[in-house]
């Protein structure tokens, strides 16, 4: 079993609800029964960030939840808090720009080269070193040096994804949310994105990645915490309106986070699958 300890809270969702007109999209996310809280995890002798997976069927409000987590949309009720300082003393409501947001379609500029896009990102961040140096370093680290002067339509899916991630990282974010980062990618690209997530969370203790996916096995294999979003059923067996948290698996506590894929992982994937089909 991996030895770890949990420290200050990095992200917490409190009773979040989203409603468009009369339509309820999300309902009471992060309540007393299933709290949504990501703590700073520490493991001896290594930098260990946090990887949180959010699963759920299509149309259950995952993308809406992610837009709220990115501070781009304001919730109708409840709130999401992040630390103002990382000593756990002061917290604030999440705001636009606090969290890096990599979307499912990896949107990039149409007429800017990779270098130009990253220049924009550096300009929006808080960097002391010259932009050229920072960009070259990131490109080398993420295996994109050869793509420095290429444009979005010349990049593969995996390359686009990595550029989108670097761009958000350069705006000095510790938190990054990835909306369905594996959708539409081939086997190699999936491995690239998996590596990217692991690279991200092994470069700083505070770095926290939250991602959504339909691929349960993949989520179980790389996340240290998994939440399932779906529709709850009432006493008559009818779906209640609006997605909410249905279950939470803390793989750290179960002793199977950061370990090779095993029978325990398969069991959890099976349980999640059943629960997901019923949500």
């Amino acid at each position: 079993m991996n030895v770890y300890s949990e420290h200050n809270c990095l992200i917490e969702i409190n009773h979040l609800g989203v409603q468009y007109g009369d339509k309820v999209i999300l309902r009471d996310i992060g309540n007393d029964a299933i709290p949504f809280r990501v703590n700073d995890v520490k493991r001896e002798g290594m930098l260990q960030g946090q990887i949180v997976a959010i699963l759920g069927r299509s149309g259950r409000g995952k993308s809406t939840l992610f837009r709220n987590l990115a501070g781009i949309e304001k919730p109708s009720s409840g709130r999401i808090i992040i630390p103002m300082t990382f000593d756990g003393t002061e917290y604030k409501n999440i705001a636009e720009g606090d969290v890096g947001f990599v979307q499912q379609t990896f949107p990039l500029s149409r007429n800017q080269s990779v270098y130009e896009m990253l220049q924009d990102a550096v300009a929006m961040g808080d960097h002391k070193e010259p932009a050229d140096k920072i960009i070259d370093e990131y490109l080398r680290e993420w295996g994109l040096t050869a793509q420095k002067n290429q444009y979005a339509n010349q990049l593969s899916g995996g390359q686009r994804q990595r550029v989108a991630i670097i761009e958000q990282l350069l705006c000095s974010h510790f938190f990054i949310v990835l909306d369905e980062p594996f959708s539409g990618l081939d086997v190699k690209n999936i491995e690239e994105v998996k590596d990217a997530i692991q690279k991200l969370t092994s470069s700083s203790e505070i770095n926290t990645v939250l991602f959504s996916t339909h691929n349960i096995e993949l989520a179980v294999s790389i996340a240290d915490s998994i939440y399932l979003v779906g529709y709850e059923k009432d006493e008559q067996g009818n779906f209640k309106e609006g997605g909410t948290l249905l279950t939470h698996y803390d793989l750290k506590k179960m002793g199977i986070a950061w370990t090779p894929y095993s029978k325990e992982h398969i069991d959890i994937a099976e349980k999640l699958k059943k629960k997901m089909l019923d949500s």
């Binding site: 990115a70 501070g71 781009i72 720009g97 947001f101 379609t105 949107p107 761009e167």
Partner: peptide, 10 residues
């Protein structure tokens, strides 16, 4: 998504 991307960049 293009607007969201830039908003997330502050």
């Amino acid at each position: 998504e293009d607007y969201y991307r830039r908003k997330a960049m502050k």
